[in-house]
Design a binder for these strands. Structure first.
Lengths: 175, 175
DNA sequence: GATTGTTGGTTCAATGAGCGAACCGACTGG
DNA sequence: CCAGTCGGTTCGCTCATTGAACCAACAATC
């Protein structure tokens, strides 16, 4: 919220959190990072976000230590943005938000999250009902649900149709 | 948010959720509702939110079925806003967000959430470590933590210094 | 019965953030 | 040499947010 003044006066960790991740688009950028999106252009086409806004969000998230900018080739110089531990710690929030949206708004099963080790669908707290443990983020597998469109327009969405683990880089085939 | 166009094209329950509760101030209004704030003026002084924005948010949340407008006296006609079941279902999201903010940003214990029945501090998923159950929202007690200021300026914050259960109306003493 | 205060708003001008389109520099591949 | 890609920046336009002022319905006080 643009560091809008007023949240600061709230003595509240929720307000502090919103100060950092509460702006428009920010949480969707982070969601995409969990799905393995790492590059400027992939965020761009997948989110349909204005370029200037994306640049601003990536910079802010990097400054906050939620994303890390990492050089992955030298010539031409190219960077990718990956979640830090602090960013990964947002998973329970995203999970709770997605579950609420699914149950109270969309009522569709768009994506299913499973324990990669055993294939069991995760409980609301990213727990594996079969193994009785809380599943770490890298061990979560995302698979398309029955209500997800099978032929999306953009290449990133198409790449995300393949089952994959969270955080693993998505493989976008060049147009 | 603002029903900005683009979230709509995302096939994602997180995006849908953000469409509804992602605007500036919205989640803080909901947080206050959990804390027992119910009246226009109490939201106003506690949040320091512009009047027009508060009116707009309350109306939107009511339209979405997250808050319910309820007449509590006839003359003069006065309404209060209380959380519906759909609103109460946002508790895990708020809890996750607050925990993240506390651990990665503020690093202070501002408020402590306990199981009212046994007094045990809640785990990250609103579970009671002592009883081994997930604690329902009305059974959660909020008490001020060691790092919370003891003499806040506004009367609502002052009223919230008393331990109380979530959702129970806060008793603000008239100025 | 006139005045003041409380509650819950609406209206207004000024500012700031988001938007889409255009542009740009560094490089690659043909 | 030319076209194309990637990761941005710049530029107007529009729309949302802000803070201050105003307002209507009533209650309590003088």
């Amino acid at each position: 919220m643009a560091l809008g003044k007023d949240y600061a006066t709230q003595e509240c960790s929720i307000a502090s959190a919103l100060e950092v991740i509460g702006e428009r688009w920010t949480l969707l950028v982070i969601r995409d990072a969990f799905y393995g999106v790492r590059r400027y252009n992939d965020f761009l086409v997948h989110l349909g976000i204005p370029r200037a806004v994306l640049a601003s969000r990536l910079q802010a998230l990097t400054a906050q230590g939620i994303l890390e900018k990492r050089r992955y080739q030298e010539s031409p110089p190219r960077d990718e943005y990956v979640l830090t531990d602090r960013g990964i710690a947002l998973w329970p929030t995203l999970r709770a938000l997605g579950l609420w949206g699914r149950e109270h708004l969309t009522k569709r099963r768009l994506r299913i999250f499973r324990h990669a080790a055993c294939g069991t669908e995760l409980g609301p707290y990213s727990d594996c009902p079969a193994c009785g443990t809380v599943v770490a983020v890298p061990d979560v597998e995302v698979v398309p649900g029955p209500d997800l469109s099978r032929d999306p327009a953009d290449p990133v969405s198409r790449a995300l149709l393949k089952p994959k683990r969270l955080l693993r880089p998505v493989e976008v085939e060049p147009a």
